[in-house]
Nucleic acid binder design. Structure first.
Lengths: 195, 195
DNA sequence: GTCTATAGGTTGATAGAC
DNA sequence: GTCTATCAACCTATAGAC
């Protein structure tokens, strides 16, 4: 399963540090999603990359820092959605439009990111607590869509609309549904929930 | 946080083994949900019960057996739903009726069970693989509701209706929503999705 | 049924050579 | 940037006394 890297011949490494970092994140995302954060050791990640644990520590200060980088990437995607919402004129159709826009932007990588977040709730929650920058999931989105004094039931409703994609991903677990199937199912549910 | 158990005075233990077993499951469910399966050691569970690890091994052959017992309990709840579905006359309204029945039966304990399953996907999945008896989640329910040749999109739709409660629980994470709020939100979504 | 003690293994992380 | 070698801390699980 590992993809060993041929040792570099010259003094210059074959790939830049930035590329290696991205590769580490890609492999870690895959393993964390499939085996869970706690079920994946630093050694697992390193071996899948064809390097040793110690080399990994050159690129990241620790295991949690890898998960943190993944969470931050996910946070940036959501922040972009918040910015878009704040630019729109408020109105009753905005919730549906925002949710459908979110779905339309969901590519394979983003779906993998959500699967990761879903499969590793305990770590994500811990990261959000320690590290105040990473606010949990759709908090900011809900904030942007609702007036300040909204009740708990209204908040729940809005949150659930955005959890729809997450629900579709979970529903597809173990089946052979494609990403397109998942997004189509989520879209139907969003439309039904915002009628 | 621990609730130490007073040592029994006579030769007979204060509580039957069955009661102790149930208490272990209750405490383990709580800890597994809050800290995750891997984040909870046998020692954590034992200390919360006021006993030592070794005593726990008298009641359960291992850590995984505890999670397995929790998963089986969850499986029994779903089996009851499957039985009910099979007794009903088939029809287009059956999906909604079954989902609403499932919601109506969801008490606090069941919601805690779902939260556990949700927060520990990797273990649940592993248990379902190794131990063929525990089939994953709503597989049986979907089977009972759909004709054999149903397509993947139709299967997804049915699964998602049942994932609604799960989505509501997730949406309520971190908020101060009550169980009633969660169930109400889930009911609205089920009705919308099955119109 | 519960305890102490410990075996046997894995983990995340560090030091220092190249 | 990558390696070998090593550490302390932690885990599950077992043995055997009471």
């Amino acid at each position: 399963m590992a993809t060993p890297v041929a040792p570099s011949a010259g003094t210059q490494p074959r790939r830049s540090a930035a590329a290696t970092r991205a590769e580490i994140l890609r492999v870690a995302l895959d393993l964390f999603t499939r085996q869970g954060y706690d079920g994946t050791s630093i050694r697992d990640i390193a071996e899948a990359l064809g390097m040793t644990k110690s080399s990994l520590y050159y690129h990241f200060p620790g295991k949690e820092a890898i998960a943190s980088a993944l969470a931050e990437r996910r946070g940036r995607e959501l922040e972009e959605l918040v910015r878009w919402i704040e630019e729109q004129p408020p109105g009753p159709g905005l919730l549906r439009d925002a949710a459908l826009r979110w779905l339309a932007s969901a590519d394979a990588e983003q779906i993998r990111g959500m699967r990761f977040a879903r499969a590793n709730q305990p770590v994500m929650h811990r990261l959000a607590e320690e590290h105040a920058g990473i606010r949990q999931g759709f908090d900011r989105v809900v904030e942007a869509l609702l007036p300040g004094g909204a009740g708990i039931r209204e908040r729940l409703r809005v949150r659930m609309v955005f959890e729809t994609l997450s629900a579709a991903i979970l529903a597809a677990e173990g089946t052979d549904a494609t990403d397109d199937d998942i997004i189509a199912a989520a879209r139907d549910a969003v439309v039904a929930a915002t009628s």
